[in-house]
Design a protein around this nucleic acid. Structure first.
Length: 479
RNA sequence: GGCCCCUUCGUCUAGCGGUUAGGACAGUGGCCUCUCACGCCAUAAACACGGGUUCGAGUCCCGUAGGGGUCACCA
């Protein structure tokens, strides 16, 4: 029966509904699947005008670390998925969990089980040998003796009938109660199990909608049994399919089950791109592919979430990222690219470097799939003279190329305006005078200016570099 | 193994009894072009299989196969 102590925690009273929550265990970083679960919870809350909460499930003391907590918070922060209330830490609530278990014990809805680990192991072996399902057989369910031995508290789960979940993603899912066993609520050291902790915390936080990975679907039958024993309101459930690797197997580290910070730091992905990609992996709204945050809040709902697992596809992520790179503000991109460039350069960028970079950003960002590409492709702009020529560039600077470059240099030096259009006019004039295509003129010029054969428009490059630097680089090539 | 879930182009998906089965990424071909990109156009590519139900099935039902999840004093 509900108890007077079963009111929602003061910090969570009166929150706008629906109330969702993301409940990671801090045993590592915020991985890609977790990020998507958080995103769906966040979007659902925003779409319906509700509340998004965060709970850190740190009851596994051996594996939970402060570093992991910091990483998860950092990842959520980067993705803009911040909770509407301070996080609740599960371990701190062990006392309350135990209290609930003891109440069930007092009410005869739970019981003490004195079976030893070895005994249970033997029981499972026997079940396995006989081809029976492996589950606790309830050997202490009806016993009333209380030996002076360590014990666990088990829920007296229903054995008749069936439990039905009306899942917002999976639809109606039913399971016979005979499949349930009397699972453990309290360990022999008095600490709560996950199953107990989740149910109690979700209740105490006023969570109305549980949206989580479908690896929890079968756990839900157990949790429902507990909730019903307690007489608490049942939340509505939505179990979203997990993400698989490119080979269809469960997503592992080598597939990209990395922390979101790896996408940020190592792969140079923009948070809005990761969000859009993750959103579309498992959710769809007609043919819409590119969905910004505001649009996502408007469109997102659980009925758009599919039931089959999706595979992680880096190529698609990069394609989405390329789109958001083009949309991104130039100053922001300079700030994001600069540290990466400084790293390959071995030196910080100067204020002047940053200006050149900013002036080139429109040209640069259309050809980058990620920040690493962007930084790498921009390096030539900030290198100090004389530039090293790569192989393809050297080829362009053969005798004919150098002679053409000398001509071009003379015309360029005479230019009155140093902007892209004026420079392009100069380039075209040189080409015309020599009855050549513009490509012939641009080739050696590009080599001299960039040290490469592939780069943005030479005229845009010169405009960004400025007169002195441009001419200087050409002179270097001319020797 | 028991139970639960899933199955449309290579990938993400649209489809909610009647469609030339649509879009996106990746692929291929082309256009544009000072190179590389971007952009644009075109192209190839799918209803896992077998039974039903129905005038009619990718859509509904039942099997089969394959994949996934779960069965802890882990979360």
């Amino acid at each position: 029966m509900p108890d007077a102590s079963d009111s929602i925690l003061p910090a969570f009273v009166g929150l706008p509904r629906p109330v969702t929550r993301f409940a990671p265990s801090p045993t590592g970083y915020l991985h890609i699947g977790g990020a998507r679960t958080a995103l769906f919870n966040w979007l659902y809350a925003r779409h319906h005008g509700g509340t998004f909460l965060l709970r850190i499930e740190d009851t596994d003391r051996a594996r939970s670390t402060d570093d992991a907590i910091a990483k998860i918070l950092d990842g959520m922060n980067w993705m803009g998925l911040t909770a509407d209330r301070p996080a609740l830490f599960q371990f701190a609530r062990a006392g309350r969990h135990a209290e609930v278990a003891h109440r069930l014990l007092d009410q005869g809805k739970a019981y003490r089980c004195y079976a030893t680990a070895e005994e249970l192991e033997a029981m499972r072996e026997e079940q396995k040998a006989k081809g029976l399902p492996q589950r606790y057989d309830g050997r202490w369910r009806e016993r009333t003796d209380t030996p002076d031995l360590p014990y666990v508290v088990r829920l007296k789960a229903p054995r008749e009938g069936e439990t039905v979940i009306e899942d917002k993603v999976q639809g109606t899912v039913r399971q016979a109660n005979s499949e349930l066993d009397d699972f453990v609520l309290l360990r022999s050291d008095g600490t709560p199990t996950y199953m107990l902790a989740v149910v109690v915390d979700d209740h105490d936080m006023g969570v109305t909608d549980v949206i989580r990975g479908d690896d929890h679907l079968t756990n839900t039958f157990r949790q429902l049994a507990l909730i019903r024993a307690l007489g608490w309101p049942e939340p509505s459930y939505a179990h979203v399919p997990m993400i698989h690797g490119p080979d269809g197997a469960k997503l592992s580290k080598r597939h990209g089950a990395l922390g979101v910070e790896a996408y940020r730091d190592e792969m140079g992905i923009l948070p809005e791109a990761l969000e859009n990609y993750l959103l579309r992996l498992g959710w769809a709204h007609g043919d819409t592919e590119l969905v910004g945050r505001d649009e996502a809040v408007k469109l997102f709902d659980l009925d758009g979430v599919g039931r089959s697992p999706g595979r992680f596809d880096l190529k698609k992520l990069e394609s989405v990222n390329a789109h958001y790179m083009k949309q991104a503000d130039n100053c922001r991109l300079v700030a994001l690219a600069a540290p990466r460039m400084a790293e390959s350069l071995g030196a910080e960028l100067t204020a002047q470097n940053r200006e050149v970079l900013l002036r080139s950003m429109d040209e640069l960002k259309t050809r980058a799939k990620n920040l690493n590409d962007l930084a790498a492709s921009a390096l030539f702009l900030v290198r100090t003279r004389p530039l090293a020529m790569d192989e393809a560039a050297s080829k362009l600077l053969d005798d004919a190329g150098l002679s053409l470059l000398a001509d071009t240099r003379a015309s360029l030096a005479a230019a009155t305006d140093w902007d892209r259009d004026a420079l392009e006019a100069v380039g075209k004039a040189v080409a015309e005078a020599r009855e050549l295509g513009l490509g012939k003129v641009a080739g050696p010029l590009r080599a001299a200016l960039t040290g490469q054969a592939n780069a943005p428009s030479v005229f845009a490059v010169m405009a960004a570099l400025g007169r002195d630097e441009s001419l200087g680089r050409i002179d270097d090539a001319l020797g």
